[in-house]
Design a protein around this nucleic acid. Structure first.
Lengths: 277, 277
DNA sequence: GTCTAAATGTCGGCC
DNA sequence: GGCCGACGTTTAGAC
């Protein structure tokens, strides 16, 4: 069987289920009222409340509330989960070392515990990263500037590796820093660091610094200006193209019966529109 | 009732359950075999596989596999979830704008769907932040240097706000940058930016830059040296103190009956030690 | 292991 | 809302 679920189990039964799940390498979800303590790089305490505990076979642990994308508490992969019953209550601890960290979840009430056996995997194909930007620039250096000639990527300097290093048509050294989204002053400082570093390598050289990004903030623009650095606007590749307009035309909405529903808490008087795309 | 669960439901029944859950503002977990598509700031595709979909009433959506702390795909809070059945299969879409992003989860098989009504909340108390560091330094400025006098926190400069700004016993301006953990070159560049900015405000002033952190990397140390900046070692407060040693002695392990179990997949021949603390 | 920088980062604070 | 910087960031890659 692929799923094993206990509804409102006795804490001792929950422990047995966890035991099984750990042995089988299952993905486990526990929902109930609990307190959470964490101690490690920082430390925190969470009073009693309803939360969802997700335990993964790779040693990750996540405590989620009904809000936020980020878990309210967690333990990274490689941690070791341990379940126990103390004073008649289910307790899940997750420890790791380097750094030493402990997560301690004590349940007052267990509403449900489910163990899922995860079989297959498929790799994620992601498009639109900084790597894409670099590829495009190496393909067409004129995106940076007419006559720009890339010489190296990840060129090492005392300030760290430069994204793209090259020369302009006048033979000046050019440092290119790539960012996939709108940038603030930190990117300018990073670029400045590279330009300075290359400048120190060869005191006679004229080193230009070019920031390539979709756009810059006002403060960043001022800093660029102040430091005599340059900016080239370049959007990251969506990877989407004109493909999804065709999807919107309803190419696959032919004989299929379709029902819909929506979900986001309506705190105000929001009305749902009933359109089907 | 607090929990509502369907085991291996028909896709149409799953849709009805989702509908209910969305209306009630429940936390929803769907486990099953699905494909995932994301398009927005980047875009990605995920082939068929067993995954866990977590839908929160605040509009967050998380797709988790059996690995990693980070979801393989997600949507941030404020998104709008929409469920439908198309071609007889459950489909959950989550959209948001600014930026426009879509997450599309299509289920081939739904193993389980659970809706949890989350009632109470409890606030998180966290210790060990950069804020703590600043408080401690304002309490005892000699932690930075004997005779250091803080004049302002978050003092604005063209390079951004300075953590702590003050004067030394010789009347020189002092810029203090705080980091709660070991720092690399970027923190040095940041400090340099502040020092430069203050230097530009008053060309006559002597401006010192002090980085306060637990430690620095070799590269950062070299940069500090090169720029004539200074470093003061200061650990963040754990908030733990000597408290947890007493816990380890087993003060609360008296008459309570305790059973244990552990969970982390044993890929190699790792042995478990049987100690109970 | 340590170090370094990217990320669909997320999140909170301030303007 | 945009901008800015912290974060128990996490993660991947290089050494």
């Amino acid at each position: 069987m692929s799923v094993e679920t206990l509804h409102r189990p006795a804490h001792r039964d929950a422990l047995v289920a966890l035991d099984h799940a750990f042995e089988r390498g299952d993905l486990v979800v526990v929902f109930g009222r609990c307190t959470v303590e964490y101690d490690g790089r920082a430390s925190s305490t969470l009073g009693p409340g309803d939360r969802l505990l997700l335990l993964k076979p790779d040693g990750s642990a996540l405590v989620h509330t009904d809000e936020k994308r980020t878990p309210v508490n967690w333990q990274p992969p490689g941690s070791e989960h341990r379940a126990s019953v103390r004073d008649g209550r289910l307790r899940v601890q997750s420890r790791r070392s380097n750094p030493d960290e402990v997560l301690d979840v004590r349940f007052e009430r267990v509403d449900q515990i489910s163990a899922f056996s995860v079989s297959e995997r498929a790799d994620l194909a992601l498009v639109g990263s900084e790597e894409d930007l670099r590829t495009r620039i190496l393909d067409d250096p004129s995106l940076v500037e007419e006559g720009f000639e890339p010489l190296a990527t990840e060129r090492e300097t005392t300030a760290g590796p430069v994204d793209v290093f090259g020369r302009d048509s006048d033979g000046n050294a050019v440092v290119v820093e790539l960012k996939r989204r709108r940038v603030g002053p930190s990117a300018v400082r990073q670029l400045q660091g590279y330009v300075d570093a290359i400048g120190r390598e060869d005191a006679d050289a004229d080193v230009r610094g070019i920031l390539v990004a979709p756009s810059v903030t006002d403060r960043a623009a001022a800093l660029l200006d102040e430091r005599g650095l340059e900016f080239v606007s370049l959007e990251p590749d969506d990877g989407a193209g004109s493909d999804d307009t065709s999807r919107a035309t309803g190419a696959d909405a032919t004989d299929a019966s379709e029902s819909e529903s929506r979900g986001e808490r309506e705190d105000g008087g929001g009305e749902l529109d009933g359109r089907e795309d």
